[in-house]
Simulated scan of single mutants.
Amino acid sequence: MALKPTIYKLNLNLADSDKHHYQSYQLTLAQHPSETAERMVVRILAFALNADERLAFTKGISTAEEPDLWLKEDHGAIALWIEVGQPKADRLRKAVNQAAEVKLYAFGKTADTWWGIESKDIPQSEKLTIARFPWADIEQLAKNLDRNIRWSISIAGGELYVDTGSAVAHIIVGAF
């Protein structure tokens, strides 16, 4: 018998002063049985950084054909393809060929090792942006997850301030 995903309800209050985007979102996230809490946190932060009414969580980790999040145009074209983690260069090449814009949010204890191995093969494209979340911050946020997530995220100067109700994190998204 296959394991079923764990369903999370996310109440996200977002204040992005960089983009002048202020919105509350009521979202449902499915955590695949093989997905870590840390990876799910990065998906939430990636959503916050790119928030739009049309941005959607996909099947992500359970399918190779879809990113973790995407924004599709009304006619079906992929305007934004968002990956989280440490994908193979081939996956990023596929994304660059399919979407108008691609963003990768890398994270993890082994991110430097991954970058050392994959960076030479990652496509050089103006359509591709690669950022990195500090592992310690992601671990801390993952410790406080429950099935009903109520977060307030403020974004200013490219930095995130995440209030989980029980903790506050200041996250600086970096580069390799």
Rank of each mutant, 00 (worst) to 15 (best):
K4A: 15
K4N: 14
P5T: 13
P5I: 15
T6V: 15
Y8N: 00
Y8V: 01
Y8C: 00
Y8Q: 00
K9E: 11
K9Q: 09
L10N: 13
L10D: 12
N11D: 13
N11Q: 15
L12G: 01
L12V: 06
N13M: 02
L14D: 07
S17Y: 01
D18S: 06
D18M: 10
K19G: 07
K19H: 03
K19Y: 04
H20Q: 12
H21A: 05
Y22L: 10
Y22Q: 13
Y22G: 06
Y22R: 11
S24T: 15
S24H: 12
Y25T: 02
Y25C: 04
Q26H: 13
Q26Y: 06
Q26I: 04
L27S: 04
T28E: 15
A30P: 06
A30C: 14
A30M: 15
Q31G: 05
Q31E: 11
Q31L: 14
Q31N: 04
P33K: 14
P33Q: 11
P33G: 08
P33E: 14
E35A: 08
E35Y: 04
E35P: 06
A37P: 08
A37W: 04
A37R: 15
R39H: 10
M40E: 01
V41I: 15
V41A: 08
V42S: 04
V42G: 05
V42K: 02
I44N: 03
I44Q: 02
I44L: 12
A46K: 03
F47H: 05
F47L: 02
F47C: 04
F47Y: 09
F47W: 00
L49R: 11
L49C: 07
L49Q: 08
N50G: 02
A51G: 01
D52P: 03
D52K: 00
D52G: 01
E53P: 08
E53V: 06
E53I: 07
E53L: 08
L55F: 03
L55A: 05
L55K: 07
A56W: 03
F57M: 11
T58K: 09
K59G: 10
G60T: 01
G60D: 01
I61H: 01
I61L: 15
S62K: 07
S62C: 12
S62M: 14
A64R: 10
A64L: 13
A64I: 13
E65T: 13
E66K: 11
P67T: 09
D68R: 00
D68F: 00
L69K: 11
K72F: 04
K72H: 07
K72T: 11
K72P: 06
D74K: 12
H75K: 10
A77Q: 12
A77T: 09
I78R: 09
L80S: 08
I82P: 00
E83H: 08
V84Q: 02
V84E: 07
V84D: 02
G85Q: 02
G85Y: 00
Q86G: 03
P87C: 07
A89G: 09
A89D: 10
D90T: 13
D90P: 01
R91D: 09
R91F: 10
L92C: 08
